[in-house]
Amino acid sequence: MAASVPSVQEKWTGKVREVTLGALPADGGTRGRTVTVGGENTLPFLHFEGEVPHRPAIAIEIWDHPPEDWSPILLEAWGDVLQDVGAWAKKAEEVGADLIALTLDSAHPEKGNTSGEQARATVRKVLEATTLPLIVYGPGQVDKDNEVLVAVAEEAAGERVALGNCEEGNYRTIVAAALAHGHLVIGKTPIDVNLAKQLNILISDMRLDLDRILMDPTTGALGYGLEYTYSVMERLKLAALMGDSMTQQPMIVTTGFEAWRAKEARVNEGVPAEWGDWTKRSLLWETITTMALLEAGANIVVMRHPEAVKKIRQVIDKLMTKA
């Protein structure tokens, strides 16, 4: 007697929108390839009940000036390329990035206050150094974000760069720049389903097409709020699959930035012996944070350490293999 096990396949009515980063020469850009994310009509990697047409993409975070307060482990892993944003971008492509996430940190008023002109030059340099599509983040200070991202949008017109971050109080200028020059935007909200929806609505009300919006639900690292991010992402993904249109944007999370802020990754002095080997522990801090959020529905992960990137690439390969 063969047991007949009931089917538990869900029939979801909705799916995540497809969003393409980067533009080929034929489409007005200069990229060697484009990256499309989203499109899935099931929960992460459940090939038995739906389609996962695009693998999650890995972006590597690079800065426009050498980061001073990064963990020594990261500084050592990247070495000399930290001195030159073009070399860094090239190296990032070599170690397996799908996307380059450039942070214009030097534009921060407390970190150099560099100008829009400088931002243009930086972006130009990165576009020339790599063939990958770009994400560009401002320094995270409202006025400077507007200033440098507008300059970047102009300089990289037609390249389908993802510009970030748009937040509730500060999205108009960036969305307008994306509209004017053929880019995408990243909308960021603090770990809340309704706030995420609301921001998507506000952005699309400005007539930016929905296939040009990524959402960042805010990342908490392993041990530092991961569970909140994890659950809000699961809730957003479920809402998307159940057909709630304004939750159907692909999700991007900054796992490298958050994981490497954690004490466990940053330092080794005066920490308990039970935390184990520093390098291994810190790699796991970044990769476990990333793995967990991939399984919660991340479509783009922004990472930092080259070894962590390699591992996550293997994990994605395996998760994309149909069982």
Binding site: L226, Y230, R281, L284
Partner: peptide, 28 residues
């Protein structure tokens, strides 16, 4: 840990991996 196991049999004992895993378990 995240997806539904009750017992996890590990082959390599190393505090550098156990500590992050216990943290993940606590989070989830």
């Amino acid at each position: 840990v995240a997806k539904y196991a009750g017992f996890i049999v590990m082959d390599h004992f190393d505090p550098a991996s156990l500590y992050p895993l216990l943290t993940l378990r606590q989070n989830i």
